[in-house]
């Protein structure tokens, strides 16, 4: 099949970017989207051009490294699919594809389609963990977790931190990511002691990173390759309000309180 690509090429963080057109022929419908870009990069290298920089790692849809906006949709047109798991058969022959990086102040472009998602790491560092050593997996019946809570925690823990939620949000808000990370620990017994400090610290860091304000469009949920529900955003808001009421000092300090 044939495709026409318009790829965002930006040589460096402070440099201006432009769309560059590439006409591809002999694309196999069974190629993944990234394999198609690999083929293009081989052609670019063969003619001494700079290959297109893009993030990728596992190519199994579970690491969260890859991601680009394809025709206005983060990770492309298929629901619940990362860019690496998207196949060229998802597009019609002769398709015209506009490929852009995630666009957010908090995700500065490093090169071409690669963005710096260090903001997510710093949000995790602000409380997205359990301080105490929990050791290896405990004996199953020593710490009881209701099945419904375990399932919900698992749904939230499915977040791979790819950043598609931020990319899809009209406000470039990171609420779905933070909600998933706050919820998967907040639903489990091990997460309870630091629950209030966690949510306050992570939200403060999210704001400090310059993400936008959630206005409940729901685009994040539609773009999420793991289909994480915006119900977790309601849960995040609930946890945050409770934390503000019960631990007001941690809000003033903005450092996540007890573990700060």
């Amino acid at each position: 099949m044939r495709v026409t690509l318009h790829v965002w090429r930006q040589p460096g963080p402070e440099l201006a970017g432009v769309f560059v057109r590439y006409d591809m022929t002999d694309v196999s419908p069974d190629m993944s989207f990234l394999e198609m870009l690999d083929v293009l990069n081989q052609q670019l290298l063969a003619r001494q051009d700079d290959p297109i920089a893009f993030d990728h790692d596992c190519r199994e849809g579970i690491c969260g490294a890859c991601g680009m906006v394809i025709n206005g949709r983060p990770h492309g047109p298929r629901r619940a699919t990362t860019t690496c798991q998207l196949h060229m058969r998802s597009f019609p022959d002769g398709a015209e594809l506009w490929i852009e990086p995630w666009r957010a102040r908090a995700f500065p472009v490093i090169k071409d389609l690669v963005v710096d998602r260090g903001a997510f790491d710093r949000i995790i560092q602000a409380g997205g963990f359990i301080t105490a050593r929990t050791g290896s997996a405990p004996e199953a019946n020593s710490l009881l977790v209701p099945k419904a809570d375990a399932d919900l925690a698992m749904d939230a823990a499915a977040c791979i931190g790819c950043g598609a939620c931020v990319a899809a949000c009209p406000n470039a808000s990171a609420m779905l990511f933070v909600a998933a990370k706050v919820s998967h620990l907040g639903l489990l017994p091990q997460g309870q002691p630091e629950r209030a400090a966690r949510v306050v610290g992570m939200v403060a860091q999210m704001d400090a990173e310059g993400f936008g304000a959630c206005s409940n469009h729901g685009e994040c949920m539609a773009a999420c390759p793991k289909e994480i529900s915006i119900d977790f955003i309601a849960r995040l808001n609930r946890d945050y309000l409770k934390a503000v009421v019960s631990h007001p000092s941690s809000v003033v300090r903005g450092d996540g309180g007890s573990n700060g």
Binding site: N71, G72, W98, R103, A104, R105, A168, G218, E219, A223
Partner: peptide, 16 residues
Amino acid sequence: SWRARPVSYRRLEPVE
């Protein structure tokens, strides 16, 4: 929100 996305997309397709 405006500050959070200084460079806008060529297009962002609304879904939800």
